[in-house]
């Protein structure tokens, strides 16, 4: 019983990282219809930024988070301005272009920093555990869950209670009419893309104490995040949250019960089946479109 609880807790903490990655992916897809295959590389860039800031300036992850968010958001902004914005009317080509961008980013890191694994220390304030009966909860993992909940609430606030969010939702509903009201879609798109990328960067930084940092780390995370977006449906924050909980624990359970490889295969098959049978996700948003 205790081991099951511990497993669920570990699954939940991974799910909260997944939630942050998937939020970025879902926002970009929901707003622009762009499936961003470079999202995993944004996660990887966030992780490398965390490593870089720690090596060079001795900044801990927590202090560095805003900087990392900005750094990766700038990369995202550049990618949108430089490449993605030319392709909004060619959705298939955005997949190809973002795929290419992912390779370029990965290869740049591999050439510039080197292919070997890097490590980032856990913040010292969050060392130690909370023990409840047989359940051992690492403070860092508790922090992850709380932080991702905060990100979720923050994103909800941004989308529903700010001028930026209102503009974004207006564009999603009808781009031409929004333009008539003086909203500049290209500006909103660029900021949205940057925000999504920044979230991925934060997730990448937060994951560093748990896994080693390598140029290829992003692809692994992004498959799960992708499944979350598909399960949760686009445009529903609650759907994304529930889905990341489901996927995080299910993927932990799969690799626990079967083995890692079969767990991955099951995950991929789940993606395929869901796209085929529930293309709008398990929690479709009836209001939009």
């Amino acid at each position: 019983m205790d081991s099951v609880l511990n497993q669920v807790f570990a699954g939940l903490s991974m799910a909260s990282i997944l939630l942050i990655v998937a939020l970025g992916l879902a926002i970009i897809y929901g707003a622009m219809g762009v499936i961003n295959l470079a999202h995993g590389e944004f996660v990887m860039l966030g992780a490398y930024s965390a490593w870089f800031l720690q090596e060079q300036f001795g900044l801990g992850i927590l202090v560095a988070l805003p900087v990392i968010f900005l750094m990766v958001a700038v990369v995202g902004w550049l990618v949108e301005r430089g490449v993605v914005r030319w392709l909004y009317h060619r959705p298939l080509d955005t997949i190809l272009a973002t795929w290419g961008i992912g390779i370029v980013l990965q290869q740049l890191v591999r050439l510039g920093i080197g292919p070997e694994s890097r490590y980032v220390a856990r913040p010292e304030i969050l060392d130690g555990n909370v023990i409840l009966g047989g359940l051992v909860m690492a403070n860092y993992r508790i922090f992850l869950i709380a932080f991702s909940a905060a990100v979720l609430v923050g994103t909800w606030y941004l989308l529903t209670r700010t001028e930026f969010g209102t503009k974004l939702r207006a564009i999603i509903q009808n781009k031409e009419i929004s333009e008539c009201y003086g909203i500049r879609p290209e500006r909103v798109y660029a900021l949205t893309f940057a925000y999504g990328a920044g979230l991925a960067g934060i997730a990448g930084a937060l994951i560093t104490p748990l896994v080693s940092v390598t140029p290829g780390m992003g692809t692994y995370v992004v498959v799960d995040a992708f499944l979350v977006v598909i399960v949760g449906g686009v445009g529903s924050l609650i759907g994304t949250a529930v889905a990341s909980g489901l996927v995080g624990t299910a993927s932990a359970a799969f690799s626990f019960l079967l083995n890692d490889t079969l767990g991955r295969v099951a995950l991929l098959l789940a993606i395929i089946l869901l796209i085929r049978f529930r293309p709008m996700g398990l929690f479709p948003d009836k209001v939009r479109r």
């Binding site: 298939l92 490889t261 991929l268 085929r276």
Partner: peptide
């Protein structure tokens, strides 16, 4: 038959490829 088109065909075929390779390696 399920009228899956465009980007979703791309994602399904990509996922299938990754799964197949994993099986062959394992």
């Amino acid at each position: 038959r399920g009228r899956v088109t465009g980007v979703f065909v791309a994602i399904i075929t990509l996922a299938f490829l990754v799964a197949l390779q994993l099986v062959f390696i394992s």
